[in-house]
Design a protein around this nucleic acid. Structure first.
Lengths: 376, 376
DNA sequence: TTGTACGCGTTATCAC
DNA sequence: GTGATAACGCGTACAA
């Protein structure tokens, strides 16, 4: 019964109710009263053309006469038409959507990176589907990936830190059955495209700075060593010390859990073991803050007795007391780069090609302030 | 030519290539080689049932015989079938997706709130489509809303602070033509559902605490007064002072831009004007940090000479020197509540009903530490 | 209980 | 340059 074109009259069955539309001048009032889902067919009828032509006007993929293009444009505006991206994605087999899987958005690094991701995605015309893991070693990887692929995302950004064996699921064949992916901050793996900060270089930067300032016993305040980033920063610290012929023994390592509270406690214990320490490299600014706190409480002057360097350059770090020397990651840039690389993969795949997954490292930068004796 | 069922043989035209499938035992090899988009039809053929039956098994909306249900389940697993949510959303007229429009994700409050939003959304089975504004007074409101409605989100969470007239676009008729929405942190408006922290109560809490501690000249360090939140906190500060019969004049107000740097500068200027100030309520913890810095630099002892209270309870605030007394917002809870309220609206609308938009205020809580002389 | 035939809103192919 | 028509993958009255 539906769609029996007959003379100037068209009957259309829609959502259970029958609506009569008189061509070629549809009754505007009736159209306005309908609770809004105006489709490409409505536009076509109003402009007196076929739906295909409207589509051509909208996407610009095929030439269309100037006169009709204007009629269509007017109809679009008058009806307040908005293309249904769901339907478009269905037939296009591409949703212009990127999936972002992240952890720890309440912390400085991840949220900053997400902002960069969103910016670049918007610039390239992608929408973002956001999925958060509750813990870095969340077991729900499969469910998250299933949901994302079910929604037909064009690509996935995996912004979860590598801790423990939470990345064990990643292998080449598994990746092959997934949409293009890019990983943030993880160890090199065959078949996986990666974008990360060069943590080792950052730690070397910090440690070398302390050595250059004349410090001889440089302790390190780390996050959990189950984190790959922590192991990298540990390696950088060790590299710099060994290159300078200085001690880099386990006795100088204090492990905490990234928080200021734990940082304070860990340093307190470390200073009991090794009262000769004259410098500390803390693996993030929060723990550096805890370290400052510990020194103040213990009557050790910073930087006179102990020099301290952090990692991240959080906005607050400039206002610690004393102001914190720290290592700056280019987090937003990291996010933008991830999107760009993913975009390249997607375009390549759509053209049948396939990119050999590369690894990009971003170099961090040392910000010298008072806590290392560098300034002030 | 497509879909000519004929005996045990079915020809299907797909993506430009012809594939022959022999029923009732399809050639598995052929199925595996196809570059993956396995549909409900494939599952049906393999299970020897109709697509409709498969759908019934998957959605559970209609009863189905136990024996066939098992055959279907097996076929699903063997083929690794994943329903296409795009297609499902198209026919269901509902995408199980929420749009989140946010600003300032790199800051503590918004990112924390987003985490709460995501948690609750996931619990209710929604996916999240994320859109970020570059500035709170971003002019691109229409484009953002258009994209979200084009993707047929079931509802929208507007998590952008009210600053200047950036919310001027919100009016009852406009809202009527949009999917259900909920707004965070904005002034009451007819027809708009709102979830917010009771900023006025929070400021009163902080100020009253200072008064109770014996302070008599309580200055305030505000963010930009173009922000609605700031005006609310100002009002709370004024309320408490006036109720106590104390001065609450403009001379005690210093405006900054939320950053520690500006907070420090603003307080410095304020102390020149009013050296008699013996307490400061800072509208966020960053500015409180700047204030601490200022006092240290100026030789004013905290809390002895000047007591300081912040707002937000950032994790670092407990490790400022001295530890910061502050007002804690329940940010994640705010996000969860927003999702729940939006969910209610959505369900109501789907049943033809319509909720009268309500406003929910969450009460903040005072965290007393050393900077106000309260502890330590 | 299960199969058949549409419809959801859009694009692509192929005629004219 | 434009108009039919067939997909895209899934849900669902309706019939069997």
């Amino acid at each position: 019964m539906p769609c029996q074109g007959e003379g100037g009259i068209t009957w259309r069955h829609r959502r259970g109710s029958i609506t009569a539309i008189i061509s070629p001048l549809p009754n505007v009032k009736v159209l306005m009263e309908r609770s809004h889902p105006v489709t490409i067919v409505d536009v076509a009828e109003r402009a007196g053309v076929s739906p295909g032509t409207v589509s051509n006007v909208l996407t610009g993929k095929r030439p269309v006469a100037e006169s009709t293009r204007q009629r269509v444009q007017r109809a679009v505006e008058e009806l307040g038409y908005q293309p249904n991206l769901l339907a478009r994605s269905l037939v296009n087999r591409s949703s212009n959507t990127l999936g972002v899987v992240a952890y720890g958005l309440e912390y400085y690094g991840p949220s900053r990176t997400l902002v960069g991701i969103e910016r670049q995605a918007a610039e390239l015309g992608y929408s973002l589907l956001l999925d958060l893991l509750h813990r870095p070693d969340d077991q729900d990887v499969d469910a998250v990936l299933a949901e994302l692929t079910a929604r037909r995302v064009d690509g996935i950004i995996w912004a979860v830190h590598e801790v423990g064996d939470n990345h064990a699921w990643i292998d080449e064949t598994r990746l092959h059955s997934l949409p293009p992916m890019i990983f943030l901050t993880m160890e090199q793996r065959p078949g996986a495209a990666i974008v990360a900060t060069d943590n080792r270089a950052g730690a070397r930067l910090a440690t070398q700075h302390l050595i250059d300032a004349g410090r001889r016993t440089v302790g390190i305040l780390t996050g959990p060593t189950s984190w790959w980033e922590v192991r990298e920063r540990l390696a950088g610290w060790r590299n710099a010390l060994e290159a300078a012929g200085l001690e880099a023994s386990p006795a100088l390592i204090a492990e905490a859990d990234w928080t200021a509270a734990a940082g304070e406690a860990a340093l307190k214990a470390l200073l009991v073991r090794r009262p000769d320490i004259d410098a500390i490299f803390a693996c993030n600014d929060q723990m550096a803050l805890g370290a400052l706190h510990c020194c103040l409480a213990a009557g050790r002057r910073v930087p006179h007795d102990i020099a301290i360097v952090g990692f991240d350059n959080t906005p607050e770090s400039a206002f610690f007391w004393p102001a914190l020397t720290t290592v700056r990651q280019h987090l937003a840039e990291l996010g933008r780069l991830a999107v760009n690389e993913l975009h390249r993969q997607i375009e390549a795949q759509q053209q049948g090609a396939t990119l050999t997954p590369a690894r990009h490292l971003l170099h961090p930068e040392l910000i010298v302030r008072a806590s290392s004796g560098g300034a002030g």
